[in-house]
């Protein structure tokens, strides 16, 4: 029940985000959205994911979005009607396809679903002996699928270097120009 309530809140926030044009409010609502998402993860037993989403989605992303608004502007202009009509059609079609796809899915929380029978049981049953850590998520993350995590680390490395390359100032840049830009 808690999950449904929280997801319902998320849906409300999502729709509000689509409609509100004050970007600042949108970013704040986005923060709540992530925080709620994190709470839902925790309630769905994904404590590690909830942890990360809270720190990243609600924390870092929000702060970065605020930083961007500070450097740009915080008011959105109106979108032309025609464009939103096309988008609505595209979205409804995609959503309908997805809903169609759900019809044959294993039901929510079903312990007999294939997902719980092929690969995952081994992690739960053997990781205690093979890796020796109580936290199975850490075992899988760092050992069984450690290579994914290496890739993930490189992704964040890429992002940091990329932000430097896009936004970073060179120290050889004359100072005067910057001062003028700031005063102006």
């Amino acid at each position: 029940m808690i999950i449904l309530a929280l997801m319902g809140f998320m849906a409300v926030i999502g729709i509000a985000m689509a409609r509100i044009r004050d970007l600042f409010a949108v970013v704040i609502l986005g923060g709540i959205f992530s925080l709620l998402g994190a709470a839902v993860y925790v309630i769905l037993d994904a404590v590690d994911v909830g942890f990360t989403e809270a720190a990243v989605g609600a924390g870092i992303s929000t702060v970065l979005l605020l930083g961007t608004l500070a450097l740009t502007t915080s008011e959105e202009k109106v979108t032309p009607e025609s464009r939103s009509l096309v988008s609505i059609v595209a979205v409804i079609v995609t959503g309908a396809v997805l809903v169609y796809g759900t019809l044959d899915m294993p039901r929510y929380g079903d312990p007999t679903a294939p997902i719980n029978h092929h690969v995952a049981p081994r992690y739960l049953e053997k990781s205690g002996d093979e890796v020796g850590l109580p936290n199975v998520v850490t075992s899988v993350l760092a050992s069984y699928r450690g290579y994914d995590t290496l890739g993930e680390t490189f992704v964040i490395f890429t992002a940091a270097v990329g932000v430097l390359a896009i936004l970073g100032r060179s120290r050889r840049q004359p100072k005067r120009k910057r001062m003028k830009a700031r005063k102006g």
Binding site: I28, A38, V42, A54
Partner: peptide, 25 residues
């Protein structure tokens, strides 16, 4: 986890307040 939430909540609020007050981070 609750501690992280509280922490992030605090930092977020400070950041937002600061943004509003100074239009910058």
């Amino acid at each position: 986890l609750a501690l992280v939430y509280a922490l992030i909540n605090f930092i977020g609020t400070i950041a937002i307040s600061k943004f509003v007050a100074f239009s910058g981070l």
